[in-house]
Amino acid sequence: MKRNTTLLVLAATLFVTVIAGVAIGPVWIAPQKIVAILTNLVFPTNHTWSEAEAIIVYQIRLPRTFMALLVGSGLAVAGVAMQALFKNPLADPYVLGASSGAGFGAALIISFGLVSAVFVPPAAFAGAIFATFTVYALSMIGPKSSVSLLLLSGIALSTLFSALISFLMFLSGENLHQLVFWLMGGLWASRWEYVEITFPVVLVGTVIVYAYARDLNLMLSGEESAQHLGVAVESLKKILLVTVSFIVGVAVAFCGIIGFVGLIVPHVVRTFTGPDHKALIPASALFGGILLIWADIIARSAIPGSEVPVGIITALLGAPFFMYLVRSRRKNIF
């Protein structure tokens, strides 16, 4: 499939998915009503819907669907960047301890009972960036960072932060439930304020990663080869690590830890775009959004009257699918 056709198909699918994300739920809202409600925001028309329906669409499902879209896109793009940067098919946005760093920052705030859009995101950013740069510093050998040290340090730091998060949960008492639920990853708390913060972070992050698409292609032939072809390897690493930290920080801050999206989406998308990052990055952004919106639809419809954290859904669906992918396409993946 030609690159533009692929992107067009994905964009159309995303549009349908967004409508579905708003339509499906405990109360079904017909797509034409959704379109009418949204059109009404710009061109007021006759009400063909109830006030309750308007509130469900506008105040609940739309911000939630947008959050799923943004977080899914962001994690997928971050995953693409990490896999290329570390030349490792197992790399994902969380591999460098960014997620558990962000998780710890956010958990610290939540365990003090300060659940708000004002405090949690900065704490999560701070945690993500602190973790990423600690890992980066630990991996330095002379003027260069070693990829295997980077991954090992990432695992060590993740474990440390996970232990600290568990410790906070142990201490948190009445905030425990909230903390546990948040860590499992979910989109139920989504509000327009969250979207307003997440949107620019993910958009700018994706644009930055896309700007380095050519360099990421070169990185796939090895760090030294990339440098011989003119890539400033260490500064590329720093720029992308900061970018990924921001994306992960904002995602974790609002939605907890949603696993597997950043790992699988790049692999799935590569099977139809090939490894060229100029196609892979935009396609992954679209596909990541589609995937997380559907996962969230399942999360809120699977058990009537209740809601499963979306992180559980992505892992439940993602892990077996990933195993299938690894077995059936092992030659193309590795």
């Binding site: 290329a84 796939l220 032939s221 090895g222 030294e224 440098q227 003119g230 890539v231 090939g274 193309n332």
Partner: peptide, 22 residues
Amino acid sequence: PKRLAQQMAVVPQSTDTFFFDF
């Protein structure tokens, strides 16, 4: 690095397989 790469090219000893297939 980019300026240097305009002037100098390197062919390494053995080429690792590419991480993803180009």
